[in-house]
Amino acid sequence: MPREKSAFEQLHPCDFYTPDELLEADQMYTVYEIARLLQGLEPTAEIDEETEAILLDWAIPWVMQNAAELVVADPPTEDDPGYYGLRRGTDIERE
């Protein structure tokens, strides 16, 4: 249910990291790791499933918004997530 802005003590700008600020150029990350990084956590930080689900609510739109600056790799197995990384000129073979 919507709330009046006046109901909040303070409002903050909705700023997110850019891919260059968040990701290392030579690394690939799962969306779960990106979710942690967006919150200032280490990519391998242990968090409970409920918190992880909330963090994914931020990470998935971030990946979609920044898709032009990212590359994606297939998961190692069918049960694993895919991997995302910074797009560099030589990362994708042209057909």
Rank of each mutant, 00 (worst) to 15 (best):
M64V: 14
E49N: 12
L55T: 01
L37T: 05
D57L: 11
M28C: 04
A35E: 07
E49Q: 15
A67F: 06
E49H: 12
Y32D: 07
M28H: 06
L41G: 00
E46K: 10
E33S: 08
E24Q: 13
D57A: 11
A67M: 09
E50F: 12
T44H: 10
N66H: 15
A53Q: 13
P61N: 04
I60Y: 11
E42F: 05
V31E: 12
T44W: 05
A67P: 00
D26H: 12
A25N: 08
L55A: 11
T51S: 13
E46D: 08
W58L: 08
R36C: 07
D57V: 04
N66G: 07
E52F: 00
D26Y: 05
E50Q: 14
Q27E: 12
A68K: 12
E52M: 14
I60L: 13
Y29R: 09
L41A: 00
W58N: 07
L37C: 04
M28Q: 02
E52Q: 15
D26C: 03
D57Y: 02
L23T: 01
Q27H: 11
I60H: 05
T44M: 03
W62P: 04
L55P: 01
A53H: 09
Q65S: 10
M64C: 09
N66D: 03
L37H: 03
D26A: 11
T30K: 08
E50K: 15
L38C: 06
M28S: 06
L56Q: 09
P43S: 10
I34A: 07
E24D: 12
L38G: 06
T44Y: 09
G40N: 04
L38E: 05
A68M: 08
Q27L: 06
P61A: 04
D48T: 01
D26E: 14
D48I: 05
E46I: 05
A68F: 05
A53K: 14
L23E: 02
D26I: 01
D48H: 09
E52A: 12
W58S: 08
E33G: 09
A59W: 10
E52G: 15
P43Q: 11
L23A: 02
M28P: 00
V31L: 08
W62L: 02
L23V: 01
E50R: 14
I54F: 13
I60G: 00
L56Y: 06
M28K: 01
E42R: 12
